[in-house]
Amino acid sequence: MAVKSRIKSVGAAQSPLLGAAMFSPAVLYILLLIGAPFILAIYYAFSDARIGSTQLHYVGLENFRSIVQSPSFQKAWKNSVIFTICAQIIVLVCANILSIALEKPFRGRGLVRFLILLPWVAPVSLGTIGWKWILDSIYSVITWVLIWLGFVNKFSPPMWLGEDKLAMASVILVHCWRLIPFSTVILLAGRTAIPREIPEAASIDGAGFWRTLFQINLPIMTPILSVAVLFGTIFTFTDMTVVYILTNGGPYDSTQTLPNLAFTQGIQGSDLAAGAAVSVFLVPVLVVIAYFMLRVAHRTEVV
């Protein structure tokens, strides 16, 4: 398995100097364009940076104080959490079902996989625009079908993106639509790695459905499930494309999220400091995710 061979041949001896020379440009780039801005973002959050002025003053927690009190922000972080959790639950259930169905090869699997993967591989902003048309206030196909089935009154159609609850549901729906393909392929990779014999042996030994599920299948799948959930969480929590295109936080901040609020205040409102302060609230979540990601990586390394 992952047992590293400790035998070093003469030729392939490690050469740290050459190695350092080869990786330092990339590491330098990463430090300059990810590390430095990361620190700068945190620094901005404590300053009065604005677009157009080059002066920076340290203002302490002033930005955080004004942001935490604003209703937009309170709405935004709640929404970010709700969207992320709801989307993850739905995605996990659907992706599990779908990955079981796709596991064995069959005729036309390539085509089916291509169609299923479309939402993930097509640019997010374009897929979301497609949804904006589907959820249009007048020409929505969903409304048309509901009217045809007689569930909805023709003269008071639902405004998918114009009512609080419906708009939130729409955003979650689009996030799910986008993430299901990704989680499915990840789980698929995990499933094909499960040795067939273990569940079969368990059933011969008399383990029932629930027992097989909880004591055998789930534990084997845990690392891969957590990978899917961790990536899904990152992609939903830090994404601003879907909300920006679909509702831009509206109606009345009811679908506002942290990244979108950061953009609205920091770039459109030219208040870099406020925007940075909002986006800094993403950091705790990132730290937690990174921690779990490391645990997954280490556990699999030790096996």
């Binding site: 590491v27 990463i30 801005p37 920091g266 993403l282 990601m293 990586a297």
Partner: peptide
Amino acid sequence: IAIFLTYLVPPTLLFIPLSRV
């Protein structure tokens, strides 16, 4: 692995300082 973790830092966190840069 450390480099991989930097992949998790999203554009929505970095775009404000980077716009200044």
